[in-house]
């Protein structure tokens, strides 16, 4: 998952970037409301972790503006204000979920997976396509019942392909999923990850659509 964290506290923001990164997500961090608006208009994120109180404005204003534009990106509000009226105001402004500070990192990750799953319209927390089963909660992947070990990036590419089985994912899209802003992307990085993935989950499982991108074969 590619996640945008909007949080002005440097320690917490760093913790979220590293912690969610360890769980297989690509995380970008912005510290102000203005940067958050810019990031959201320029990039597609699978989920946004939004602090309610930012130095240059309220997180709720960003959220309302986002929803007014018809942006459906799942948003989880992080806040020091977790009294019931605050939670109601947050959810009514368009938040998908709400978590009070301080929180548990694992719970935050689970809630992010849940709101992404809901937005994608999936009932099952586990992705399963043509014999490949991927569990986002445990980062476990099995092919034909046998566990395979994937690197963090390989896991991210496979998740992206499995979220919409049969849909074509372009190379840029996959790069966006894999790398945050500060990371250097090598020109053939995606090709290398695809190559390694094919070796682990089966050569025929991932199709190359020439000039467009990659697609997961839905029939075994």
């Amino acid at each position: 998952m590619r996640i945008l964290v909007v949080e002005d506290d440097p320690v917490l923001a760093d913790g979220l970037k590293v912690g969610l990164g360890l769980m297989g997500s690509t995380v970008d961090v912005v510290f102000t409301a203005a940067d958050a608006r810019a990031a959201l208009s320029a990039n597609r994120f699978d989920a946004v972790v939004l602090d309610r109180m930012l130095p240059d404005g309220a997180g709720l204003d960003i959220l309302s503006a986002l929803r007014r534009q018809g942006d459906m990106t799942p948003v989880l509000l992080l806040t020091a204000l977790d009294e019931t009226p605050d939670r109601i105001a947050g959810l009514d402004a368009g938040a998908d979920d709400y978590l009070g500070k301080p929180f548990d990192l694992d719970e935050l990750a689970a809630r992010l997976r849940a709101i992404v799953r809901r937005r994608e319209g999936r009932a099952s927390p586990v992705l399963a396509v043509a014999g490949i089963v991927l569990d986002p909660a445990t980062s476990m992947v099995t092919v034909g019942g046998k566990a395979v070990s994937l690197s963090r990036r390989e896991f991210a590419v496979l998740s992206a392909l499995m979220e919409w089985p049969g849909a074509i994912r372009s190379r840029t899209e996959l790069e966006d999923r894999l790398y945050g802003w500060q990371e250097e992307v090598e020109s053939n990085a995606v090709e290398v990850h695809i190559h390694n993935l094919r070796a682990k989950v089966g050569r025929a499982a991932i199709e190359t659509v020439r000039g467009l991108g990659y697609r997961l074969r839905t029939e075994p």
Partner: peptide
Amino acid sequence: AHELRTPLAGLKTQAQVALAA
């Protein structure tokens, strides 16, 4: 609330990162 709870959230998150790393 923001000034008191945010550092706590940061501490907890970093501690969990240290444990998981």
